[in-house]
Nucleic acid binder design. Structure first.
Lengths: 159, 159
DNA sequence: GTCATCCTGGGCAGTTTGTACAGCCAAACA
DNA sequence: TGTTTGGCTGTACAAACTGCCCAGGATGAC
């Protein structure tokens, strides 16, 4: 279920230089091309690598403002709220969390003023009792996975 | 700075079927291959598309538990805390937010028990005054960008 | 000892990429 | 109105890559 050291190196390599193909990757890793192909196939079918979709930057799309909203939901309204939020494009992700039967969602907006519109749309729904929003100022650690992959590969090699 | 309707269709297509190449994309979109290549180059150099790195699933790596931690930082310790958290592999992202000079970070762990270890490591640092953690139970809306891309493309076509 | 698994190294046909170039069209501009 | 600029099309060609196949060797499990 885990990944070994070669898997780890392969993922890190692909993360750093996504444009290289299987052949080039095999050269960099010092293994046969067939090996890289087999590893990649396995990593994808096992779900470790979900895909190679484009990583789009909301800022460059015209949505430079990010915020996290904590929502308090009325009992039994979870499904409705999920459907509601799913229909809002500015909601980039949504989680249900422990605590107060709450939800946490990530929002983007075109400006601070626009954020108000987004929040109004998000909370303008019957099942939502209360919302508190935290606007992101800096992003010192952008979403990353490489350190975790290296950790997982290292754990494997010791197992 | 924005994207037009063709850009939008291209990004959505690549997000849905990342394995297709430029040639196949041009066929699907009904435009010349050179056009797709030019659009892709522009989208990448303008930063709208940051890359095509592998999307790794922490769950499949052996880290099925996700949590969000809100951290309260001692005045003037921001830089140190950032450096500290940057060194923790289980910290997948970190934001500074409005509110109480706080930070919000996304964590993963191998189990609920392991989460305790991660949290201890995260908060075991002088500059962090207090931390509150919300464990993710469900993820009704996984991180997504397609609806926003469609919205941005639509806004453009009306502008 | 034998089997299953994985990696290697090689080969082959088909396809894609990178790059270039000429023609066409529409919008902007003098 | 005449011209220029920018973007798209269609085509071309060499180089490179992919998908797929196979036989041999090494390793670890039973």
């Amino acid at each position: 279920m885990g990944i070994d050291e070669l898997d780890g190196r392969l993922i890190v390599l692909l993360a750093r230089e996504p444009r290289i193909g299987v052949l080039e990757a095999s050269r960099r890793l010092g293994v046969a091309r067939g090996t890289v192909q087999a590893r990649l196939d396995r990593l994808q079918s096992s779900g470790v690598i979900r895909g190679f979709g484009p990583q789009v930057d909301p800022t460059a799309l015209g949505y430079p403002v990010t915020a996290f909203a904590t929502l308090e939901i009325k009992q039994g309204q979870g499904a409705d709220v999920r459907a509601h939020l799913n229909g809002v494009p500015e909601v980039l992700e949504l989680h249900t969390t422990t605590g107060h039967g709450d939800m946490l969602c990530r929002l983007v907006a075109r400006s601070n003023a626009d954020l108000q519109r987004v929040i109004d749309r998000v909370v303008g729904f019957e099942g939502i009792v209360r919302a508190s929003t935290a606007i992101v100022m800096e992003n010192p650690v952008p979403l990353r996975i490489i350190p975790l992959v290296e950790q997982a590969a290292e754990d494997d090699s010791r197992a």
